[in-house]
């Protein structure tokens, strides 16, 4: 028996990957545990775009996430569009140099609502996105249907600690990187894929969530303050959204969120051994991209161990 601590994206992916591999699990998730940071994620499965600042391991290993998620939950495979305001057009050239698997497009050919505000854009055809909350709920229901117990109390089996920032006391090199986001509603804008707006100071992305809902994210602040979104963050994100499409000015703000991304010093999510158990943590901004990969790594280790034991 494996006891997964935590039911955010790291915990649920680990539990699912282990069950897929035939390893029995339980999930320990006290009612008093803080809500997982992954509830506020963008839900972009964008390994190539992330390569702009992330090391190559995220790009190469993260690609597996798309097929994994598609095998378990609803995933939209419409790629990612990257644009820049006219006066920052050179940011696109830099982005193109720093990434791969893209091609130049006329943005309104993919997203007619962008009209002629952007002369050119980068299209990352092989990327995808999902709705984080819907995906996490679907994983949980799937696990429940397979008979996995979600409960409070003492773990019965070997521990796989996926508690994010709550594991700080046993992971001294874990720090929080604050992220802030908004969700808005407007029936006036239609986007069929995540759009990233490059801006030297206020980069942002907009992820369509369907039925007029859009997630606008996200700030990256080296701070462990977990309070509500700041006025500055809201202004920056909203003004970036407005520059993407003026109709966002009339959108209703239906939700705001702020939380901490658990991060290791290299900003790479990791599976680590700890005593007889494991940690999966440091998801940083790559939770949905890397949690399936680390879950499968763990499943591989455990099945190998049990094969060796026989």
């Amino acid at each position: 028996m494996i006891s997964i601590l935590g039911s955010g994206v790291a915990g649920l992916c680990a539990a699912t990957a282990l069950m897929d591999a035939g390893v029995e699990v339980e999930v320990i998730c006290p009612d008093t545990a803080p809500a997982p940071a992954s509830r506020l994620a963008g839900g972009m499965l964008a390994p190539f775009c992330e390569g702009e600042s992330a090391p190559d391991i995220i790009v190469t290993r993260g690609q597996a996430a798309i097929a994994w998620w598609a095998a378990h939950v609803d995933v939209t495979r419409h790629g990612t569009l990257v644009v820049a305001p006219p006066r920052d057009a050179q940011e696109l050239d830099r982005f193109a140099r720093a990434t791969r698997a893209h091609r130049w497009v006329t943005p309104n050919a993919l997203e007619p609502d962008l009209e002629d505000r952007f002369a050119r854009g980068l299209y990352f055809e092989n990327e995808a996105h999902l709705d984080p909350n819907a995906a996490l709920t679907a994983l949980k229901h799937r696990l429940l249907a397979q008979g996995v117990v979600f409960r409070d109390g003492a773990p019965q089996g070997r521990i796989v600690d996926c508690r994010g920032m709550s594991a700080t006391e046993t992971l001294p090199d874990l720090r929080g990187v604050r992220g802030e986001m908004l969700e808005v509603y407007t029936p006036e804008v239609t986007l069929s894929r995540p759009v990233r707006l490059l801006h030297p100071r206020f980069p942002c992305y907009i992820v369509p969530r369907g039925e007029g809902r859009f997630m606008i994210g996200a700030t990256m602040v080296e701070s462990s303050r977990s309070g509500p979104i700041t006025a500055r963050a809201a202004m920056e994100l909203l003004s970036a959204a407005y520059s993407l499409h003026p109709a966002f000015a009339e959108a209703e703000i239906i939700m705001t969120g702020a939380d901490l991304r658990p991060s290791f010093p290299d900003n790479i999510p990791a599976l680590r051994r700890k005593d007889t158990g494991f940690h999966i943590n440091g998801m940083y901004r790559h939770g949905f991209l890397m949690a399936p990969v680390l879950g499968m790594d763990l499943a591989g280790l455990l099945t190998q161990e049990s094969a060796d034991a026989h």
Partner: peptide, 13 residues
């Protein structure tokens, strides 16, 4: 200014 008192993790590095 922006990080405030909560930036201790990064500042320790």
């Amino acid at each position: 200014r922006r990080e405030g008192a909560g930036g201790a993790g990064f500042r320790d590095i």
